Computed example of a mutant assay.
Amino acid sequence: MPEHSISFMGIAISFIIILITFYFVIFLKCYKKPKQGQAIVRSGLGGVQISIHRGIYVIPIFHKIEYVDLTIKKVELERKENEGIICKDFIRADMKINFNVRVLNTSNDILLVSNMFGCERTFDETKIKQIFEAKFFEAIKTIAFTYEYEELHHKKREFRDEILLLIGTDLNGYSIEDCVIEYIKQTPIAFLNPNNILDAKGIKKIKELTEIENK
């Protein structure tokens, strides 16, 4: 075989090896796969794409990627002392109720959360609490006012279920995985305001119940 043919073949092989190496480098650089419990939101060229289980190609300059946390986050809600929840009989109750929430594992819900709250926020329990605190507390207060204080201790499950029913399932891409009532106890009279008409009624009720128990 002529010497120049061997030289040409060597150059061709070297070029192919360089191309293959370049391809794998680009593949490793541009191929992004979400970690367990995360999703990728890619925007830019080609529109918005969501990757939950499989990887996705990301071309620098043309694409931007963000990550969404799909793991369960705890939203701890507590009201006590002069902020205790008022019951049907006007007795205040100190409460701590924990909600476990997570982003729903579908492309539409992930995109909705990304647009409404931002991807970065899904990793921060404090910021997630800010999203739901007002809505969840409103449901707690509304349902608690349909129960007398002593009923809450005997019907905690019903109380919990009614709270979840009132909150509903429209949480803009999130879902409640569980709700746990950590404690419910009477707010001490020392924290009630006798000049507040509701607290005044609560104080009267507590004294009546205490007198009955003493007898």
Rank of each mutant, 00 (worst) to 15 (best):
H4E: 06
S5F: 08
I6E: 07
S7N: 05
S7T: 10
G10Q: 04
G10S: 05
I11F: 09
I13Q: 03
S14C: 12
S14H: 00
F15R: 03
F15I: 15
I17R: 01
I17Y: 04
L19E: 11
I20F: 13
Y23L: 07
L28W: 14
K33H: 09
K33C: 06
Q36E: 15
Q36S: 10
G37Y: 03
G37D: 07
I40N: 05
I40Q: 06
S43K: 08
S43W: 00
G44H: 10
V48P: 00
V48K: 13
V48L: 14
Q49D: 14
H53T: 15
R54D: 15
V58H: 12
I59K: 05
I61D: 00
I61A: 05
F62K: 03
H63N: 12
I65W: 06
I65E: 09
E66K: 08
I72N: 11
K74C: 04
E78M: 08
R79N: 13
K80D: 14
K80Q: 14
N82H: 11
I85D: 11
I85Y: 11
F90L: 06
A93G: 10
A93S: 11
D94W: 02
M95Q: 09
K96A: 11
K96S: 13
I97R: 05
N100A: 11
V101Y: 15
R102I: 02
L104T: 12
L111V: 05
L111D: 11
L112V: 11
L112A: 14
V113P: 02
V113S: 08
M116P: 00
G118R: 08
T122L: 06
E125Q: 13
I128R: 04
K129R: 15
I131V: 15
I131M: 08
A134T: 14
A134C: 02
F137V: 02
E138M: 03
T142K: 06
A144E: 07
A144D: 05
T146W: 05
E151M: 11
L152K: 03
L152Q: 06
H154I: 05
K155M: 12
K155D: 13
K156L: 06
K156I: 08
D161Q: 11
E162A: 13
L164R: 13
T169S: 12
N172W: 05
S175L: 06
S175E: 15
I176A: 04
I176Y: 11
I176V: 14
E177C: 09
E177W: 02
V180A: 01
I181M: 06
Q186H: 02
Q186T: 12
P188F: 03
I189C: 02
L192P: 01
L192N: 01
P194Y: 03
N196Q: 01
N196D: 15
I197G: 00
D199T: 01
K201M: 04
I203Q: 07
K204C: 00
K204P: 00
I212H: 06
E213P: 01
K215V: 09
